[in-house]
């Protein structure tokens, strides 16, 4: 069985950041593997270690800079990677359909039995690509999976979906399927030194849209970000000033007023 893992390099703003135009200033952003995708990579690697998956392929849509991130997925045990980028993606904010079109082309080439990806990306927070991809490629799907057992012989993934309020839905999903992975599904490993060394020799296949038989028109976005701003603080909090000792003193006073005592 072949597993495709979609990963994204996400940007995280520093505590202090400036907004330039419709995005945060490049200098104030740090890049990292999306937290949710880290759990998806771990799930895929565990399937390989259990002898269920024969091959784990990581795929990302991202510029050359993202190779550092996708190499982390390789260091953790993915066999190889595909990185898709094109000038067309620089044009603006890609919508879900544009990403799905790109991943669809990769799925056609790779023919996976299972696609895993994070529930959402930490930066844009759409939470939609996996389910939309499943619809496009005719796979079954389950969103927000926090427990996963693959029965390859039966062709079924037995999952828990994490609903709101501490309730989980138990669902059997026929393969091939796309599952979106929630944090907490497993314990993502740290890449070992050996893994990091091996990852240097693993293949990252860089493709542009033409390589996938697509053109810029295929990934045209229906969405445009027209402004970005820091939300007005609705805070009417009393911010307690002073050093740690003074702050703790005032806080203790407040807590005692509210009836807190051991």
């Amino acid at each position: 069985m072949k597993v495709l893992v979609t990963v994204k390099e996400v940007a995280e703003p520093d505590d202090d950041f400036a907004i330039e135009g419709t995005d945060i200033a490049e200098a104030d952003l740090e890049y990292d593997l999306n937290e949710w995708d880290d759990y998806a990579v771990e799930a895929a690697v565990q399937l390989a270690e259990a002898g269920i998956a024969d091959e784990v392929v990581a795929v990302t849509i991202g510029p050359e800079r993202a190779e550092e991130t996708i190499r982390m997925a390789l260091a953790k045990g993915a066999d190889r990677a595909v990185r898709v980028w094109d000038d067309a993606f620089e044009e603006g904010f890609s919508d879900v359909a544009a990403k799905v079109t790109t991943f669809e082309a990769v799925v056609e080439a790779e023919e996976p039995d299972l696609v895993l990806g994070g529930v959402q990306a930490a930066d844009t927070g759409f939470g939609a690509t996996g389910v939309a991809l499943a619809e496009r490629i005719g796979f079954e799907h389950a969103a927000v999976v926090n427990d996963l057992e693959v029965d390859a012989d039966a062709g079924v993934a037995r999952v828990h979906r994490e609903l709101e309020g501490g309730v989980e839905e138990l669902t059997d999903v026929d393969l091939p399927a796309v599952l979106t992975v929630q944090t907490g599904l497993n314990e993502p490993r740290y890449a070992s030194l050996r893994g990091i060394r091996q990852a240097q020799r693993k293949e990252i296949d860089a493709k542009d849209l033409a390589d996938l038989g697509l053109s810029a028109a295929d990934v045209e976005s229906a969405l445009a970000i027209t402004s970005m701003y820091e939300p007005e603080s609705e805070s009417d909090a009393e911010i307690i000033e002073g050093d740690a000792g003074e702050a703790a003193g005032r806080l203790a006073e407040v807590l005692r007023e509210k009836g807190v005592s051991a």
């Binding site: 919508d95 879900v96 359909a97 529930v119 690509t129 389910v131 969103a143 709101e164």
Partner: peptide, 23 residues
């Protein structure tokens, strides 16, 4: 925009070729 909403809204948008904005 709930766990179940996100389990079918993207598929609806995709099937009917409609733009999707979540959350």
């Amino acid at each position: 925009n709930s766990v179940n909403g996100l389990d079918y809204a993207p598929a609806v948008a995709e099937e009917h070729d409609l733009p999707l904005v979540t959350d």
